[in-house]
Design a binder for these strands. Structure first.
Lengths: 197, 197
DNA sequence: GTTGCGCTAGAGTGATCGTTCTAGTCCTGG
DNA sequence: CCAGGACTAGAACGATCACTCTAGCGCAAC
């Protein structure tokens, strides 16, 4: 293997820059020339690492940043006293992140998913796999806390739905209040489910 | 005034076609040439009715379809026995609509809002006004049912957040279950608020 | 019946899109 | 020390982008 170190760094710069651009302006509005500029890479490098072009790069961005955001949420939730408090913490952390970043989208999956869901089936499937992964991981945390399988799945799905809806609202209104309100409600619902067990 | 009838019809065809295209593929991926073709209009007509070009047309689409979707939801909610049931009905109706349309976005505001929120302030403001309008209308229904002003605003905001998040999930997963689950939860929360009054 | 205007028609503008391609450079294994 | 592959560099391609512009159509007022 030749030059693995520097090549991996370039590939990484491309992914990071693309993720950042997607968070600000989504999939269609982001051009390869912007990615080239922001990542200090070249067109050749992009097509070397992602021979499938923009779509392959986008798929990888979805997978990597989806997993990363999942890790972040899971670690916040698991480090709390119980899952209900943890999920509340996750909402609060996301809200803080949004305000600090001047309401840049904390994660690009929802935006891109809605952009491509009806026009690009391979990318839709990647986005769906990412979201299903989030639901699965959250549901596992809840079943670990003795919530029944069915309740855990429904609650986990509700959490993801609420986070995504919260991103739309907060970003559009430039206000985290709706996001925090939704987080408090979800936290209470999870607490109720824990109490029933 | 000359030819008011036919001109209004053309303007309307442009708006309808653009709304439809935005629902499927969002703002950036929709080109004026697609709009020309889908509306059987010409470039000249588009710039005659919307001198500000794509952005002015987009703003009008957001306002018109936002108001239209608001009307639809309000009429469903108001025709139910009580607001809680009505909101549940609205979720069910939206879910049915989504399945019938092969998961085309029922309304383009959320997608476009997230696309442009960080890059096009005038359009972001239009989207924000539309969403605030929805919240206000829903809150008014709840205060009419003797929910306190504060609770009504918080619940209304939660309803909009949940609907938007539900659209993201349902469209991406091609499954209305998460949307319906979220709707049931929201309906129960509203019912609780009504019971407290 | 002609003037005026709302509206349509669509070719043309420069810019930029995603992608391809050829020429390199640089490191590494033998 | 050289052969070869990983990687970079960026010019060039046809297509398409939002938008402009000139020409002309068709109805209404007078």
């Amino acid at each position: 293997m030749a030059r693995t170190t520097s090549s991996a760094a370039t590939r990484d710069r491309i992914l990071v820059a693309t993720t950042e651009l997607f968070r600000r302006q989504g999939y269609s509005a982001t051009s390869l020339s912007q990615i080239v500029e922001a990542s200090s890479a070249t067109t050749g490098s992009i097509y070397h690492f992602f021979p499938g072009g923009k779509d392959e790069l986008t798929a990888e961005v979805l997978r990597v940043s989806g997993a990363g955001y999942g890790d972040l949420v899971e670690s916040v939730v698991r480090s709390a006293l119980d899952p209900a408090v943890g999920i509340g913490d996750a909402f609060a952390a996301a809200a803080a992140l949004m305000q600090e970043s001047d309401f840049i989208d904390p994660c690009p999956i929802g935006t891109i998913a809605r952009e491509v869901a009806s026009t690009n089936e391979p990318l839709r499937l990647v986005a769906a796999e990412v979201m299903n992964g989030w639901v699965r991981r959250l549901a596992a945390i809840l079943t670990d806390a003795n919530v029944s399988q069915g309740d855990a799945e429904r609650l986990a799905s509700l959490v993801v739905t609420t986070i995504e809806g919260g991103f739309v609202m907060a970003r559009t209104l430039r206000d985290v209040a709706p996001f925090l309100t939704a987080g408090e409600v979800v936290q209470r619902l999870v607490a109720d489910a824990l109490g029933d067990s």
